[in-house]
Write a protein that binds this DNA or RNA. Structure first.
Length: 261
DNA sequence: CGTTATGTTCGATG
DNA sequence: GCATCGAACATAAC
């Protein structure tokens, strides 16, 4: 579940359920998931801390720890957060926090493509990764235009490149291109000002809408590709059969009739 | 058995 | 340096 809207939903979940509650003990951690930090140091910072605030940049979530530092969470393709009674950890638990108040919260990551870390400063961590501004809160049209103008790479691959701007993955790239009526294979530098503006607006609109619905696909508006993103399904816009292909190495679903080159 | 999966990185090649 | 392609990571579902 982990593109920008999903991670923003996790952030709000932390704010609503975990903020200010002291972590008594960390009964389980998968050391192989910890990057750029010492697992023992991470546990040491977690135990006795409470989360005092949260921050998100692209697909990265940061939890400010009261004893110092930030717990960093990346969710890969299969990450999730879940509160539950102590001792009832979900499958594929990679980090479990037991709170003094009684229950627990688990970071789950089935495929282990995500990672955990400990950072002094969130924005320093982000810039060390070389990532661009947050696609929802930090990306402006000037940067967007410059990012497209400088490359012949297919627009979909450009949208997913975290070094240009952070947070858009395979599904929301398809959705934004669908809403903007732009074919995924168009080279970035072939989009004129008009279509570029339409795409910029579509990105913001799609991300805002997804966040406001808690990244729940079932709650997305009629006409969203993500409500029926299946090869050969009828386009919600024109009824044509949706095509499937690969762009940027990822499965891509689009309408060959309404999305123009 | 083979294929696919909401992510990212690295190496080979042109 | 840039772009493209494929493989790799680890695990499950169909």
């Amino acid at each position: 579940m982990p593109e920008l809207p999903e991670v923003e939903t996790y952030r709000r979940y932390l704010e609503a359920n975990v903020l200010g509650r002291q972590i008594a003990v960390v009964p389980h951690i998968d050391n192989s998931m910890v990057r750029h930090a010492d697992p023992l140091a991470l546990v040491a910072q977690l135990e006795g801390s409470h989360i005092s605030s949260t921050h998100r940049h692209g697909k990265l979530l940061f939890a400010n720890l009261s004893r110092g530092g930030h717990l960093v969470m990346h969710f890969g393709m299969t990450g999730d957060l879940k509160c539950h009674p102590p001792g009832e950890e979900p499958r594929h638990a990679r980090l479990v926090l037991d709170f003094e108040t009684g229950d627990s919260m688990t970071y789950v990551c089935q495929r282990k493509f995500g990672y955990l870390s400990l950072a002094d400063d969130p924005e320093e961590f982000v810039s060390a990764l070389g990532w661009g501004p947050d696609a929802l809160n930090g990306l402006d049209e000037t940067v967007f235009a410059a990012g497209l103008a400088s490359t012949r790479t297919p627009i979909k691959a450009v949208l997913m490149d975290q070094r240009r701007w952070a947070g858009i993955g395979n599904l929301y790239a398809d959705e934004a291109l669908f809403q903007a009526h732009i074919a995924p294979t168009v080279p970035g530098n072939e989009l004129g000002p008009r279509r570029r503006r339409r795409l910029f607006s579509a990105i913001k609109e799609v991300l805002r809408t997804a966040v406001s619905r808690g990244a729940n696909f079932d709650a997305y508006p009629d006409g969203y590709l993500l409500t029926a993103r299946v090869p050969n399904a009828p386009c919600t816009n024109c009824g044509a059969s949706l095509s499937a292909t690969k762009v940027g190495g990822r499965t891509t679903i689009y309408c060959p009739r309404c999305q123009r080159r």
